[in-house]
Amino acid sequence: MTLEIAVAAALFAGVVVYSIFGGADFGSGFFDATAGGARRGAEVRTLIDHSIGPVWEANHVWLIYVLVTWWTAFPGTFAAAMSTLWLPLMLALMGIVLRGASFAFRKYSATLGQAQLFGIVFAGSSLITPFFLGCVAGAIASGRVPADGGGDLLSSWVNPTSLFGGLIAGGSCAYLAGSFLVADAARSGHRGLAEMLRVRTLGVGALTGALVFAALVPIKQDAPTLFDGLTGRALPLMVLSALAGASALVLIWTRRYSVARFAVAAAVATVTLGWGAGQYPWLLVDEVTIVDAAGADATLQALLVAVGLAVVIVLPALSYLLYLTQSERWLRH
């Protein structure tokens, strides 16, 4: 493995982890939005608050990790993508800002009216962010970001691959969130709540799975390089993703929630990995390869030092946080 590929792998590992953990946080916006009025939705919203409250900021940092590694290791392509995909990135950014702020504000709102206002902003921004990030991924994967930037500001992301990318991202987030929320609800003994979430999660999961495979039809025309990769090198991953996603549906159907979470996470991880493997060795598809995009060797080496430190420092701390939030002591409200 060359230096460039090692750094690209570390970068993409961040994308995969963010799509799972960050995705699960954003996906809770779907269940918040569909929870119903103040009275009926109180239980779901309390669960969401409790579920993502301790972890969303840590999960969010994976995005920072991805951005920073991208611009440091592959600066030219970062600038090209940022200038071409300016609008969806700006909208995703707005979603990120509003989601985080309104989530914190809602938790400490004094009145129901305030909580409802912040709640609407929270749910809405949680829905749009994965969509626009998915559009960005679709634009890169369908070869619409020119190597020197300055691609079309609209058609670069308003196209079949991008739109399917956005919808798949949104659906995956909701499926993930549903599987985590239903498990939390069941473990803390909220049976009625778990049943309601179970049905919605099954619906979202089935729909998202269908979307992933339906997307292959337009992608064949719209993004042939990606299509060849997905049906070639990445085929095992796509098959694994289908198996994981389907078995997750079965597990949720049969109420084995704690295992189901891992199956959904595996489905999302493999579909994200499938995208990465599908567009390899391109960084910007049809434009720049990973090797050609890389910055100075000294910087790539230094970045691997940073990645090593992350493995030593961040992963144990993160595991501790996740361990605590999943332990019985923390489940009590």
């Binding site: 440091t72 600038a79 230094a302």
Partner: peptide, 14 residues
């Protein structure tokens, strides 16, 4: 960023 990302980026990683 396009021109100097790999010069200035490392501290951001830390």
């Amino acid at each position: 960023m396009g021109r100097y990302g790999d010069v200035l980026g490392l501290p951001f990683a830390f």
